[in-house]
Simulated assay, not measured.
Amino acid sequence: MHGLEHYVMSIIFHYRYAGLFIMLTGGMIGIPVPDEFLMTFSGFQTTLGRMDFTKTLFVAATGSFMGMNLSYWIGRRLGIPFLQKIGPFLHFNEHKINSAEHWFRRFGDRLIVIGYFFPGFRHFTAYFSGMSKLNYARYVVLAATGALLWSITFITLGRILGEHWEKITFILHRYLVRGGIILALIVFLIYLYSLKRGKASLED
């Protein structure tokens, strides 16, 4: 077990619901927290009677939802203007920024729910939802749905696995990271394709 995982277990063991809420909120913003590990361990704690299953589920869903909302507003307030300032250094001009925003308006919101299940990718969907100024009411519904499904999945998994939660979680996390990389690559290729189509339409 790595030091970070051991630290997470210690926080949950001592602070329980408050620790779970704060760490999930911070993890969704981008602070390096092993979220799936955190929730499966919390689910395991419900089998020992140290935490209540329903309350743990509510706290986890609320914490992750809060983090996704903070990420959305950070992206909305700072994202596009900041990107426009540093764009020339990254060869990312105004047309490309507008094309990326248009692409996310068309396809990106569909990834918000499924993005929860892939480490790293969920942060991308939250920040870019804000950067693209996705309708907030729609974002709230999708983010809340994803938070609930994600929390139910991993807290229930920790409860079902019991003493085997740790071994299975590490294996599952490894495959989710790989899946997230593949998903991010697919999204990037779709984005490049949309840029190419946009450029072609301007030339016609």
Rank of each mutant, 00 (worst) to 15 (best):
M1K: 06
H2V: 03
G3C: 00
E5C: 04
Y7S: 03
V8A: 07
V8G: 03
M9H: 03
S10P: 00
S10C: 00
S10I: 00
I12N: 04
H14E: 07
R16V: 11
A18E: 03
G19Y: 10
L20H: 04
L20K: 06
F21R: 08
M23D: 06
M23L: 15
L24K: 06
M28I: 04
I31N: 02
P32M: 00
V33Q: 04
V33R: 07
V33C: 05
D35T: 04
E36C: 03
T40N: 15
T40R: 13
T40K: 10
T40Q: 14
F41W: 03
F41C: 07
S42N: 04
L48Y: 12
L48G: 11
L48S: 15
R50S: 14
M51Q: 11
M51C: 10
M51R: 08
T54C: 03
K55D: 02
T62D: 01
M68V: 12
L70A: 13
S71N: 08
R76Q: 06
K85S: 05
I86M: 03
I86C: 00
G87F: 03
F89M: 04
H91I: 06
E94N: 09
E94F: 02
S99K: 05
A100L: 11
E101D: 05
W103A: 13
R106P: 02
F107W: 09
R110F: 15
H123M: 10
F124W: 12
F124V: 15
F124E: 02
A126Y: 11
Y127L: 12
F128C: 05
G130D: 09
G130C: 09
M131T: 13
L134M: 15
Y136E: 11
A137V: 08
V140S: 14
V141C: 09
V141D: 10
L142T: 03
A143H: 12
G146M: 07
I152Q: 10
I160L: 15
W165D: 07
E166R: 09
E166M: 11
F170L: 13
L172V: 14
R174K: 05
Y175W: 08
Y175S: 02
G180C: 02
I182C: 12
I186P: 13
F188N: 07
L195A: 07
G198P: 00
L202I: 01
